[in-house]
Design a protein around this nucleic acid. Structure first.
Length: 278
DNA sequence: GCACATGTTGGTAA
DNA sequence: GTTACCAACATGTG
């Protein structure tokens, strides 16, 4: 479930708890999680210190003291846990870093879709995983956003999920953002009226900022570094609420498959634009 | 057991 | 470029 707010919560935890520590030892339980050179992965990072942790979109980047960087994508069910070594490893613990501070950083991933990718820090921006990402949804200006959206003819729901358009929004927040901005998920992007584009830009900031404040949404699996749930799911207005009354107008929340993803929305609150109103 | 659902994205084909 | 579909995988629900 980790989308931008969950990943942001995790990197803030990492910045507080593990930056500055040395990676003493690496245990790989499930090599397929490592992209690229599985054999040398542990060898190349043991002994290096973690100098910086940041994110780009949903990707977590660890910069190490030896000129290497680790990219981590949690995909659907990846989790990073920082715990004392005494704590028994839970099922699906695929990777363990022993840290000089005495704790362990563990990677747990039920569905095994996530990955760790080791690369030279100097080559990081040549990686397609990073270079293909669009701007950060919290940083893009309204004008920039207008420019991008006017060039896209696809359906707005799919566009919000497209990481090369904006990096970080996933299925939960796309549905919540569209509801807050009153836009139908099938709306073609380029014929949104100016006021709606402005509302959308605003809704993106509002939803993501508030979700970060509440440390993300724990729908089924997501937990933060300390194993704690987020609480933004309390504020979900449409996501996974098919058939329930809209919290704004009482109409029944509907669900559609759009681009193979389920989309929940209120047919009454969320309407289409035809680019006439300005 | 079966059918379908679940946070992501990468590859392929049209 | 867009779009649609299937793939990776484990588990839960009806």
């Amino acid at each position: 479930m980790p989308e931008l707010p969950e990943v942001e919560t995790i990197i803030r935890g990492l910045q507080q708890q593990i930056v500055g520590q040395k990676i003493v030892r690496v245990k790989v339980n499930l090599p397929k999680i490592i992209r690229g050179d599985k054999e040398r992965f542990a060898f190349l990072i043991e002994g290096a210190s973690i100098e910086e942790v940041r994110r780009q979109g949903k990707i977590i980047i660890f910069n190490l003291s030896n000129g290497m960087s680790i990219l981590v994508h949690l995909k659907l069910t990846g989790q990073l846990h920082c715990t004392l070594p005494e704590k028994p490893a839970i099922k699906h613990t695929h990777l363990v870093f022993d840290l000089s501070g005495g704790e362990e950083l563990r990677y747990v991933d039920l569905r095994q879709f996530g990955y760790f990718l080791l690369t030279k820090t100097s080559e990081i921006f040549h990686l397609p995983q990073l270079s293909a990402l669009g701007p950060d949804p919290l940083k893009i200006s309204l004008d920039e956003f207008k420019g991008l959206i006017s060039k896209r003819s696809g359906r707005i729901k799919s566009l919000l999920l497209n990481q090369s358009f904006l990096a970080g929004i996933g299925n939960i927040y796309a549905d919540e953002i569209l509801h807050l901005s009153g836009i139908h998920p099938l709306q073609p992007a380029h014929i949104l009226s100016d006021p709606k584009v402005k509302r959308l830009h605003q809704a993106i900031r509002e939803v993501l900022t508030k979700a970060i404040k509440y440390r993300g949404s724990s729908v089924s699996d997501y937990l933060d570094l300390a194993g704690q749930e987020g609480s933004y799911q309390r504020f979900h207005r449409v996501y996974q609420r098919e058939g329930k009354p809209c919290l704004t107008c009482q109409a029944k929340i509907a669900r559609l498959k759009i681009g193979n993803r389920s989309s929940c929305f209120c047919p009454n609150c969320q309407s289409y634009d035809h680019k006439k109103s300005l």
